[in-house]
Simulated scan of single mutants.
Amino acid sequence: MTYDPVRHAVLLADYCVTARPGDRVLISGSTLALPLIEALHRTLLERGARPVLRLSYPTQQEDVQRLASDDVLDSLHPVEIEDARALDASIRILTPTPPVADVPASRAARWRAAQAPVALSRLHPRWNLTLYPTPFGAEAAGMTLPEYETFVARAMFLDTPDPVQKWGEIRDFQAGLITRLALADDVHIVSAGTDLHLSVRGRNWSNSDAKRNMPSGEVFTAPLERSANGVAHFDLPTLYGGRVVRGIDLTFKDGEVVEARAEEGEDVLRAALETDEGARFLGELGIGTNAGIQQPSMNILFDEKIGGTVHLAVGQAYAENGGTNTSAVHWDMICDLRKGGRVTLDGEPFQVDGHFVS
């Protein structure tokens, strides 16, 4: 299967954001993604939409974090906020690039905090986050570029005759999971280094069917803010702010992270948790279901969807799930349950060794 940016663009425009005539649709991404950006721009124009391009060079964000004055780093111009509010839909394209080592974690955290008003304004019903395969993405995933392009295409089901139908099948399967999860109170997650209880009583579960993330394949909610108690070990590494962070261990007491360690990138972890008061509380519990993604690729957009994993995000909760935690941070951390892990709902098995229990 060869990755086809035109096929990708059509799926984004017609399925993910359902572009309509007159819609002001933001396309933001690096110049590395120009083949997809060009295809998406043309597709949106053909649909009668008004595409708005926000192009960046590969290290632009890191340069701002490293070089900006305090005033620029810590604030947004009002025009930026008003411009974001005027959007009808938005598509953000990730382009994996090598991490920039000389950006202090504290400055990166300050920049993310300042961006919060714009980020929140984009959380309208029609937004999507996707990825364009790059050579560094392939290197990070341990693949050749052709292998990585195939990996990306298959994760999005671009290799099927009808990707929209396939995502519909996933939506139906996940709806069945949500029927069970909606009745639960206590969720107990156990794996090597993890023994964590949290409550989801009365919270809404979202069926992530690639409308907002492409690829997708997860169900998620916002745990009760003060309910998490125990320890969690996240064994799949992540990139945060361009830095590799691996081997994360968090200890929760009454919902709050009271201890935090990491085998690599601990300074990044601690800086993120100090961003604001909400950064030490959970905003999300997610359960990955995408059987087409079975190996980590050092990219959270894919890795959090791996079938047989769960992920917890510190920071911002989605209001649609009933969560009230607010933060400039939303950092997903992944726990692999495929070898000896389990999830129970009020003491009843829900997932064992990465497989759902019927």
Rank of each mutant, 00 (worst) to 15 (best):
P35D: 12
P35C: 09
I37V: 04
I37R: 00
E38C: 12
A39E: 04
L40C: 08
L40I: 06
H41E: 12
H41P: 00
H41W: 04
H41Y: 05
T43S: 10
L44H: 00
L44W: 00
L45F: 07
E46T: 05
E46A: 15
R47G: 02
G48A: 08
G48C: 05
G48I: 00
A49R: 04
P51W: 01
V52N: 05
V52G: 11
V52L: 13
V52M: 14
L53M: 13
L53R: 11
R54Q: 14
R54C: 08
R54F: 06
S56N: 11
Y57V: 15
P58C: 09
T59F: 06
T59E: 15
Q60T: 08
Q60F: 11
Q61G: 10
Q61S: 14
Q61V: 11
Q61I: 07
Q61D: 12
E62R: 02
V64L: 11
V64N: 03
V64A: 07
V64S: 07
Q65L: 06
Q65F: 01
L67S: 15
L67G: 14
A68S: 14
A68K: 02
A68E: 06
S69P: 02
S69W: 02
D70W: 03
D70K: 06
D71K: 08
L73R: 00
D74N: 11
D74Y: 04
D74V: 06
D74S: 12
S75E: 13
S75Y: 03
S75M: 05
L76T: 12
L76G: 09
H77T: 06
P78F: 09
P78D: 15
V79M: 12
E80F: 03
I81C: 11
I81K: 05
E82K: 13
E82D: 15
E82C: 08
E82P: 01
E82T: 14
D83S: 10
A84L: 07
R85D: 15
L87Q: 04
D88L: 08
D88A: 09
A89G: 04
I91N: 03
I91Y: 01
I91A: 06
I91D: 04
I91V: 12
R92K: 14
R92T: 10
R92H: 10
R92Q: 08
I93Y: 01
I93E: 03
L94G: 09
L94I: 14
L94R: 12
T95Q: 07
P96M: 08
P96R: 02
T97P: 05
T97F: 06
T97H: 12
T97A: 15
P98N: 15
P98S: 15
P98K: 12
P99F: 03
V100Q: 13
V100H: 04
A101L: 12
A101R: 05
A101C: 09
D102I: 05
D102A: 07
D102Q: 10
D102M: 07
V103C: 03
V103P: 01
V103W: 01
P104F: 01
A105I: 00
A105G: 01
S106P: 02
R107N: 05
